[in-house]
Amino acid sequence: MYDLIVVGAGPAGATLARLAGARLRTLLVDRRTGACELGPRGAKCCGGLLAPDAQRALAALGLGLPGDALVGPQLFAVRAIDVASGRERHYPRSYLNVDRGRFDAWLRALVPPEVEVRMGVRAVALRDEGTAIAVELWGPRGPCVERARLVVGADGAGSRVRRLAFPRTPEPTTYVAIQEWFEARSADPCYTALFDAAATDFYGWAIPKADRLVIGAALPQGGDAPARFARIVAALEGAGVRHGRTLGREGTLLHRPAPAELLCGGGRVALAGEAAGFVSPSSAEGVSFALRSAAALAEALEPGLDGWFARYRARTAGLRRAIRWKSWKSPALYVPLVRRAILASGVGAMAVGESPRATPARLAALARAPR
């Protein structure tokens, strides 16, 4: 029997296994195969930018990012575009542009050899046996059942562990994220964030990745999501974001939590990262929350598994405060009148020479398009 079964080998699960695996008998499983190909088949559907919060979280863990996890160009500005008003501004912000597949693989490579790692394996059922949790796993060798004193769901938005262990607890508001990879026609060295209330009450993005361009959007769930995504792509084209032929499309679920929707777990099941709801409701940034929640859970487990929940809850108080603050900040980005006033003011913006500008006439035409 294991002390820990960690479901999900992304930043939260791999970090927890690294920090706790030398002390506790640990099994780490992930449904992905671990392929490291840049593009729609290479990793989780993710823009692959490490924001300053994520950089600070890596520093706090004593980690330095290897060069082969980076992909050019490195980005030092956000280009914010509002379709309804036709306004745009550039804001200084420093990101690390990473290959998400290689980033995750690097974190898994740091897991100590004492930890058993199984890739291409899904957790499909949980059963509380009193002194342990039985986990039914499906993988390349067929089904099996493993037992642990504590199961950790680090399996992201739509977490199966969360749904199985806490079926009566509502999940955070969930969006579908769609990304499409294109051949890049030109390198626009900034992170473009596009706001179009006719397509989504969240946002769309464009990020250069070496000789490719990834365009994505967080969209309300529903059958019209592909049409909404097409509108985002067209709006970015109207703003001068050029791309070549498509290389593939990917999608995933994405949480946008309210503070009351966070859930650390209970009993013999803990939750970390986005499975717990730890993700920014204003930007959808999740890597910093994944790393910090994993570190908090590892610290909570140091004295032993008894009493883990109270210690974990106490150590994630700062994460809950951060999400509460970002929930309060969201109206500045997502209430159209407020956003328009901020862009019009130019507060915090910078001048950028010879960068592509939004074409007001084309954006205005998109804003008048049927909804």
Rank of each mutant, 00 (worst) to 15 (best):
A12H: 03
A12P: 02
G21E: 01
L27S: 01
R31L: 14
G34L: 08
G34C: 07
R41D: 15
A43L: 12
K44Y: 09
G48H: 08
P52K: 04
Q55S: 09
P66A: 05
V83R: 04
L96Q: 10
V98D: 00
V98L: 06
D99C: 05
R100P: 09
G101Y: 07
A105W: 09
R108K: 11
L110F: 03
P113W: 05
E114Y: 10
V115T: 07
V117N: 08
M119E: 15
R122C: 15
D128P: 05
E129W: 11
G139A: 12
V151P: 01
S159C: 07
R160T: 15
V176F: 07
Q179F: 14
Q179H: 13
E180H: 14
D188Q: 10
F195V: 09
W205H: 10
P208V: 03
A218K: 10
F229A: 06
F229W: 09
A230I: 13
L236Y: 04
G238L: 04
A239S: 10
R245S: 10
T252C: 15
L254R: 05
R256Y: 06
V269P: 05
F289E: 02
L291V: 01
R292E: 06
A300R: 11
F309I: 13
A314W: 07
L319Q: 11
R320F: 09
R324D: 14
R324V: 13
W325H: 12
W325M: 11
K326I: 15
K329H: 15
S345R: 01
A361L: 13
A367M: 09
P370A: 02
P370M: 04
